[in-house]
Computed example of a mutant assay.
Amino acid sequence: MTNDQLLRYSRHILLDEIGVEGQERLARARALVIGAGGLGSPVALYLASAGVSLTLVDADAVDLTNLQRQIAHNVERLGQAKVDSARVAALAINPEVDVRALELRADAKMLDELVPASQVVLDCTDNFDTRHAINAACMRHGVPLVSGAAIRFDGQVSVFDPREASSPCYACVFPPSQAVEEARCATMGVFAPLVGIIGSTQAAEALKLLAGTGRPLTGRLLMLDALRMNWSEIRVPRDRECPVCADRAGPADSALPA
């Protein structure tokens, strides 16, 4: 680690739970961030600021309606691909990290290429089909998934880690066979700081996983009612009949210990 890097990351290095070794692990890591909007913006900025290299995936372009909450973008980059805009913002904070921008929609083939090349995956998308595809790929390749969602004044975050025998997967909590009405910001609205809070929490969970410190949200679903600023948490067990992870080694129908 160079003198400039020691200075840049000094506030992390001062933390006993991270230190030089933890910061070096962050600098060697790559995170796959799927979605470069409201959640993906703080995720990309905080991970890059901490020295984590990124692969950003999103097929959309920056629109004026995004600027109310998607802090990686600005007026000068209207019409630009969100991944390119987020890459510019991330590199403006930390030009040392490698940021790969992929302007495309996530599908099973692409995920099977990108997930194994990453140490953590962050789901910052807004539709259930993509979330289930991401979850399935993470389970196949044994890569931890940090999942976030935000709509109106309600947000949620959890970690699904196939390396942990007792960890559920996204499909254990939200079965793919369950009929779910899609809720989009374009029709339902979203409180601007909510996506910052949830996205920042996702970034924090990813950094803990990469640095090997703290207790991640594995087996727990953290929920926020931002209208009342009330956090709540529920334990989420593995489903022994889950179509995605039932065959994975380890006990089903059990949550991780407190």
Rank of each mutant, 00 (worst) to 15 (best):
D4R: 13
L6F: 11
R11L: 07
H12S: 09
I13R: 01
L14I: 07
L15D: 10
L15R: 13
I18A: 02
V20R: 09
V20N: 06
E21R: 08
A29G: 05
A29D: 01
R30M: 02
I34M: 04
G38W: 07
S41C: 11
S41T: 14
Y46G: 08
A48K: 02
A50V: 09
G51Q: 13
S53Q: 05
L54K: 06
V57D: 02
D58L: 03
A61P: 06
V62G: 03
T65L: 10
I71E: 06
A72L: 11
H73P: 12
N74V: 07
G79R: 08
Q80I: 07
Q80W: 14
V83P: 01
S85I: 03
A86E: 03
R87T: 14
E96V: 10
V99W: 01
V99G: 01
L102G: 08
D107K: 07
M110F: 08
E113F: 07
E113S: 09
Q119M: 05
L122C: 14
D123K: 01
T125R: 02
N127A: 10
N127K: 06
N135C: 14
C138T: 11
M139F: 10
G142R: 08
S147K: 07
A149H: 01
A150R: 02
A150C: 15
A150L: 12
R152S: 12
G155F: 01
G155M: 03
V157A: 01
V159M: 03
D161P: 03
E164G: 06
A165E: 03
S167A: 12
V173R: 04
P176K: 02
V180T: 11
V180N: 07
T187Q: 10
A192W: 11
L194I: 01
I197V: 15
A204M: 15
E205Y: 08
A206I: 05
T213H: 02
L217A: 14
T218K: 01
L222N: 05
M223L: 09
L224Q: 03
D225T: 12
D225S: 12
D225Y: 13
R228D: 15
N230L: 11
V236T: 14
E241L: 12
A246G: 08
D247K: 13
D247T: 13
R248N: 13
A252C: 11
A255I: 04
P257G: 04
A258N: 02
